[in-house]
Amino acid sequence: MTTSAGQTPPSSSPSSERPGQNGSEPTVLLEARDLKKWFPVTKGVLISRTTGWIKAVDGLSFQIRTGETLGIVGESGCGKSTTAKMLLMLEEPTEGSILYQGQDIHLSGPEQRREYRKSVQAVFQDPWSSLNPRMRVKDLIAEPMVINWSLPRQEIRERVEKLLSDVGLMAYHGNLYPHEFSGGQRQRLAIARALSLNPKLIVLDEPVSALDVSIRAQIMNLLKDLQQEYNVSYLLIAHHLATVRYMCDWVAVMYLGQIVEYAPVRELYENPSHPYTKALMSAALPSHPDIEQEEMILTGEVPSPLNPPAGCRFHPRCPFVMDRCSVDIPVVTEISPGHHVSCHLY
């Protein structure tokens, strides 16, 4: 046992595991290009007309590489869940494209779309709502395979047992119903189900925030181990910055439907550059009472995505605001290899 994780020197993690410094870059699995999702605001009941648009996601571009984890952080309402839904094909993008292994999934045929659907699975935050309470665990885990594969029953059963043991549960658990499990165990079941189709990408939407503290590390470590074993990529959506640092290789910081900063994980945490990222970092809770934090508490609220501010969307709350910020939309600047910021300061 590590008596205290603080004793683990930060430099002990091999740098070759970190992105951006690696000679042989892993291949890009999925790429989002200028992704937009606008929801219409309508008036009238039977004959409705659109009076405005909620720009939930407004021009996102990012890449997810094979076997790596991209974290998306931001506050509620910043569009991170909508982004996840678009990747899961639960929402159609208004504009922009999702390229999976180089193919635009919205332009490809139904066969390829089906293939994409199988390759992208999800684990959600609330383990009480993500498992159908009226199905036995073995049927829950088998369901994706039953839908997508024509396997003999015996093989499905064996695979369910393998998945249960992979997530640290026993074969007999398959005969129980979800309500007979604790939150952490349910999250393990959700992970087993998500893995059943051998997906290439799993969207993790706040996978540990509903769990007890002593259970969170179990689940995070399990996810990391499974990533090694299955060579699966993760898109992690979280608001807890320390969790993101532990889990991710790349991080995108979102504000009002846009990415304001995008960088390899250590670069972002050691050199946060966008004022919003800095504010988030200073608001996050320290891991030790002696750590002095920069006092930078944001005032005001996140503006409505119905009517976002002109220019830089962060300018009404930004402590470093300049004249041009309310006029010009900042362009994305690469301030160091892999570290992208959209702010007029750079």
């Binding site: 899961l88 699975q121 993500s130 369901e143 839908i147 997508n148």
Partner: peptide
């Protein structure tokens, strides 16, 4: 409920979601 969204993600058809 999340399990309905997850069933869609797993590729379940609408009749299957309604019935199961």
């Amino acid at each position: 409920m999340d399990y309905v969204a997850l069933a869609k993600v797993a590729g379940a058809s609408t009749p299957r979601i309604l019935i199961m």
